[in-house]
Design a protein around this nucleic acid. Sequence first.
DNA 1: CGCGCTAATGCCACTGAGTGGCATAACTGT
DNA 2: ACAGTTATGCCACTCAGTGGCATTAGCGCG
Lengths: 235, 235
Amino acid sequence: MALARKWRLPLGYDQAMTAGLPPTDNGRLPLRERKKLRMRQALIDTALEVFTTRGFSGVTLDELCDAVDVSKRTFFRNFASKEDVAMAPTQDLWRAFLDELETREPDGRPLAEMLQQALFAALERMTEEGWNRRVLLSRRLAEKTPSMDAHGLRFCHETSRTALGTLHRRLHFPAPDDLRPQLALDLLVAAFHCALDRWTHRPDTPTRSDLATDMRNAFTALPGSLTLTVNPQAR
Amino acid sequence: MALARKWRLPLGYDQAMTAGLPPTDNGRLPLRERKKLRMRQALIDTALEVFTTRGFSGVTLDELCDAVDVSKRTFFRNFASKEDVAMAPTQDLWRAFLDELETREPDGRPLAEMLQQALFAALERMTEEGWNRRVLLSRRLAEKTPSMDAHGLRFCHETSRTALGTLHRRLHFPAPDDLRPQLALDLLVAAFHCALDRWTHRPDTPTRSDLATDMRNAFTALPGSLTLTVNPQAR
DNA sequence: CGCGCTAATGCCACTGAGTGGCATAACTGT
DNA sequence: ACAGTTATGCCACTCAGTGGCATTAGCGCG
């Protein structure tokens, strides 16, 4: 068998990839599950690596699958699309965010602030070795790859809709058709993307706390974006 | 030849589809151009019709092309993808918006307001017969079709980046890396999508001025989305 | 320790989107 | 009417994504 080199791949795959979902000690998961996680992580890491060097469209799925010794059929049981595998790191963050929303209690402060803190908390959870590196590769890739960007945007949009459902379920707003909660979520997403953009263009390999900084900056810039004026004679 | 029924299709195709781009009197365009526009419009209309009745994935491109008597090769010279043809109506609006941005002068009022007015002006330009019906079909379709939604989101994102470039070129902001202009654009897009959502779910066939109303509502809800608070004992 | 049970995997064939190349037809201006 | 340009049609091809079915591998139980 080719089992010898099957798992000899860039990073360590024994850590969790479940991000912040069930905070289970996956070291004690059934063997079958751990294998699945290893394979999933292997696919993600090799995808990021090979897409980065040869371009997203420069690599066929067959090639990727060959590199990880997985059948294409199995690939599609783990990822929805070719784009999906390369967007996994960011998706982990948003899943953690949704999870945070489930447990947080309102404290009388603005909803927008609560959402921002949930996102910070989600970021804190991304403790896997090399998570920031993966996100970085993923984002830099997405910038050059329209279809990846599109899938990423849709995922965020979908997530914000799910989050909206959670908000309505947990804290009952007086008016069920109030636009503001939805807008608050969209603003959060917009600011986050802004921050992510900046972070992605930092030199070298920025850290997770760099991202937190960029997020803080974007969040504080948010109110000013509605009031910013340009004086007519500026031209 | 099948030329007899070639253009016998749902709507009138002699009107412009150039939305708000060059405000040319396309009644006096060269014959070749008018034919192209007719074909383009025929593809859009039949696509919307047939996607609506049989579902986006229930229709192959070959079928669509057959219905309009166009080769698949030609289809792809006019549209970037299968999704693209069904998203054309909304794209016209954003192109008109970009065009508005090119000519508008700052008047000392907030940038966000200026952007909103540019979008209103763009909406005013969408005077084609049945534009609202097309947007409606397009949006209702996008709701059920993830890939369409994704392409739509990406197009908006791309447009807002282009707009950002225009802003920086025409009105020189003091700080070139100020996040606020970018955020202002993203908020505009978010509010617009919010409005479009509401509009799409109105009963019957809402009008263009209904959309303007929904947009106004979304824009005015924008500031409140940052300050909205939930009281802790609301649960 | 071995033996079914279940669920994931691999394999194969197939659909359909999207592309490149090249010959042909259709409009253009003179 | 004629030459020049430009879009179109056709053909063959790649590759993402899917369904069905046989095979394998981890799991639990005696």
